[in-house]
Design a protein around this nucleic acid. Structure first.
Lengths: 158, 158
DNA sequence: ATAACTGCAAACTGTTTGCAAGCGA
DNA sequence: TCGCTTGCAAACAGTTTGCAGTTAT
């Protein structure tokens, strides 16, 4: 995501807060800046750590209280890969139709688009008489290059 | 699943335990009987409750220690729908290629087949240079009939 | 002014584990 | 007998929450 796009997303979130009569506090500003200054997927704990680098007063509680606001606003996407903690995706609003593959070797998450899959999903929903609200295709995979060479150049396997 | 098939699956699991030099204890037997006497998806807590109806001595710890054995044996499938607890599917070995849709109205899980999706998944894995290890397509949906009529006759919305 | 928000620490939930006793092979 | 397995209760990890003080509006 480019810098301009990031500013746009931040602005949208501020609007979201204002519309709900929520206050724009310093801590929230720091958290927002942190979330939308990266393209990486993160956990609550990672977000806390990053935010504290900018402002050490940010507390774990505030991070946990802000995350639901971010997902409600549809600007951040929550993902569950069967690990005991959740991952968050700050690129969601830019391309809401992507899915994720998580590498079991290094836990790195790779995004991919697939309208094909989305079409099938809606087809399935229709057939069963449901309206699909959200979809989460989680592929767990291992890195081919890593296995062959013992190392790999993917950003995903460092 | 029919009664015969259930016995077959139980037998396979006993074999799995024997091969690993694990013991066939009373508690394990009760848990196995419970798991494979239903077609329903369940949580650890539900399994504990059901097992205790047959034998009140079964403890939570044993249930939690047995579940990984069941999933390792590939006779039961573990699923994560973003809820704080996991669901388990006792029909997995019968049709390992099905996926799941969870109703957000009643949390009932509906199974569906889709080889189409599996094909696409492998295609994606290839393209990205990964070997797909496991896939989990989670559709969260709401029931159309329920919404229209305020009630519905699906087994899924009671 | 005042109601929303904060940090802290305690509580909570689902799951795991150390231990002494029990029991299958 | 031997050591795997058990139930219990305490521990654990991630997340949520009550409270008293703080701050945005």
């Amino acid at each position: 995501m480019e810098k301009e796009a990031r500013e746009e997303v931040k602005r949208k979130f501020i609007e979201f807060l204002e519309k709900k009569d929520f206050r724009i506090t310093n801590q929230r500003r720091v958290i927002i800046d942190t979330v939308f200054s990266t393209d990486e997927h993160f956990t609550a704990e990672q977000l806390l750590e990053w935010a504290r680098e900018k402002d050490s007063s940010v507390s774990r509680a505030t991070v946990y209280r802000t995350l639901p606001l971010l997902t409600e606003s549809n600007l951040v996407h929550e993902m569950d890969f069967g690990k005991p903690y959740k991952f968050y995706d700050p690129n969601y609003s830019e391309s809401p139709n992507h899915n994720h593959l998580i590498c079991e070797d290094c836990e790195k998450i790779v995004e991919f688009d697939s309208e094909k899959i989305e079409a099938i999903e809606n087809e399935i929903g229709d057939k069963l008489g449901f309206t699909v609200k959200s979809q989460n295709l989680q592929l767990t995979a291992s890195c081919d290059t890593l296995k062959r060479k013992g190392t790999c150049d993917k950003k995903s396997c460092s």
